[in-house]
Nucleic acid binder design. Structure first.
Lengths: 340, 340
DNA sequence: CTGTTAGCGCCTTCAA
DNA sequence: TTGAAGGCGCTAACAG
């Protein structure tokens, strides 16, 4: 598979290879006749510019890196799709990297990406230490963090550009919604104390409850992830203990899914016996038979904001002031929440 | 953001830059002392080799391209994850590209990827013309097609390397399973006549039915995709026409999902009134409340086979014989099929 | 309008 | 063990 180069074309066309370069890069300083001849030869010989060489000389690779925990997770898949779409619209390609939730791997990936001279990196993560990661590389390459993790005690944290959902507002939104539906005993299910994202959501819920004169109640998730399985276990606990609640506000859609399953097995009907509200609006929340009411993290908006910010950083070449963009959550009403 | 190069390091270390290169590429022809000194300086200066330059000189980019219709589709997201994982294990990175089901876009992507000197491309697609696409580029770069599309009348089609599910066997498997459960009136729902994948599945079903002395019955899908919405419409038609069937074998899980919804609205219970069998085993088929019995396309196996094949092609540099790998389907029993 | 030339950052012989 | 030099494929002045 030998590759034909610009020189081969030049030889065939009987011109210098600078002319070929010009003809292909759309320069005006070349006669229409030779251009056409050259283009024809390129086509015929199956020539394609070597992007690597071009990047090297132009000091622009035209690619950005996208680092996600796991692309097979629907939430990140949707983000990846949106980002790739925006990127392409602006002439960028994206290099996909899964950290698989592994710290070592994350380092390797960042190293690789800056070595590959990506022009920017979008780092999607909800790890608490995500901000420090981003901070570590912000001098090597523009980085925007997609996710809302804080970095307690890390003064560098504020210097990283980020886009995140207003999780606190989401907690408020959900609690108020359930209140308006007439619920007074609202359980918060599956909060992971170690996760700042969860803390924020929970804070929003708790503040709202208190200002409404209601008693907050919570079942925490001691594990290290919010999965359907864990949601199931927590919900079984909730239902079996006969918690006197008429609505459950779940820390995530996965937890809500698990709760649905548990409810089925425990003989509690959703939504007749208890209303269920999720958080995230992952794609399967909309599926028939699930129809989960939830607080949406508009993936497309997040992605757009992140890419837009990254583009600005790239263009201003690190001169831009640090920016935090906050995207507002949206209530998505489906079938799992009803008036009491 | 100026980048530090190998020359800067050489200057600081007081050696020629050839030595730096050697120290970093793990060559033995360098004294341990200077190597350590150099490595230390690199670390301190935040130096990273420029992969682009290295690729240029080594004639190896170390990246492969992955072209999918839409990464936000769970099926492709899982494939992407698996492929990225394998690739990384072998030192490759992956460039992600969504065609968004668009022909023009697909061409652009292929052109870009070969221009970027990816070492190979995995092209996931079920379009009927996918094979011709792959054939068009097989002389420029190793390509493996992940998907089973035929190319009727295209003699080039046979020359493309591919990995696919044995869809015919899947059709047989499903039909036999329903038969064993005692079903005799089995409807095939949502077959798209224009799709070769669907034709194969349907053939498997039909042959089995006939050899069992049963009458095949089918409701075709006239649209250009298998979505939940279309599945819903087709199923409503089926239920309202009072087709006398006790089981529906759906052309895809999405169709089955739509059928579930329609069933709910038409007052037919799944699985008590009719058993429902899907095809694909997309991730949400396993969700609680859905629990769809289905024929699985083992994404991980498909991905592994595809990557493995690609690797061989890369290593043998186009000398390898054309290979078609077939992955066997698996029956996944969940809750939507019961004995009659 | 076209050719010549000097690199982009790196690896790799070939000498020293 | 180290340095010098050529070149990977391409772009961008600078001449002609």
């Amino acid at each position: 598979m030998r590759r034909v180069t610009i020189k081969d074309i030049a030889k065939i066309a009987g011109v210098s290879y600078a002319s070929v370069s010009r003809a292909l890069s759309g320069s005006t300083e070349v006669s229409e006749a030779t251009r056409e001849r050259i283009v024809a030869i390129c086509e015929q010989e199956g020539y394609r510019v070597n992007t690597l060489a071009r990047s090297l000389i132009c000091q622009r690779s035209g690619v950005i890196g996208l680092v996600v925990p796991d692309i097979s997770n629907a939430f990140y898949a949707e983000i990846a799709f949106a980002i790739e779409t925006y990127a392409r619209r602006f002439g960028y390609n994206v290099m996909l990297c899964n950290t698989v939730h592994d710290a070592r791997q994350t380092t390797d990936l960042f190293e690789y990406l800056v070595g590959h001279r990506v022009e920017g990196i979008i780092f999607a993560s909800t790890r608490n230490d995500a901000r420090s990661w981003a901070a570590k590389y912000r001098d090597a390459v523009p980085v925007v963090l997609l996710g809302d993790a804080d970095s307690p005690g890390d003064p560098q944290g504020d210097r990283v550009n980020s886009v995140s959902l207003d999780n606190h507002a989401g907690g408020v939104l959900g609690a108020k919604y359930l209140y308006k539906l007439g619920h007074r005993r609202i359980l918060y299910l599956g909060m992971r104390p170690v996760s700042i994202t969860h803390q924020r959501r929970f804070q929003g819920y708790r503040m709202t409850m208190e200002s409404l004169g209601l008693e907050p109640a919570v079942i925490e998730n001691p594990w290290d992830a919010s999965t359907i399985e864990y949601g199931y276990q927590l919900a079984r606990e909730a239902f079996s203990k006969q918690f006197p609640f008429t609505a459950a506000f779940c820390a995530s859609d996965s937890v809500a899914l698990g709760a649905m399953q548990a409810a089925g097995e425990c003989g509690v009907r959703i939504p007749e016996d208890v209303s269920l509200l999720g958080f995230d609006n992952v794609s399967y929340a909309a599926l028939p038979r699930i129809c989960l009411s939830t607080i949406a993290q508009h993936q497309q908006k997040l992605s757009e904001a992140a890419f837009d910010l990254l583009l600005r950083l790239i263009r201003e070449d690190g001169e831009a002031a640090t920016t935090h963009r906050i995207v507002r959550p949206i209530l998505v009403e489906r079938s799992t929440c009803i008036p009491i």
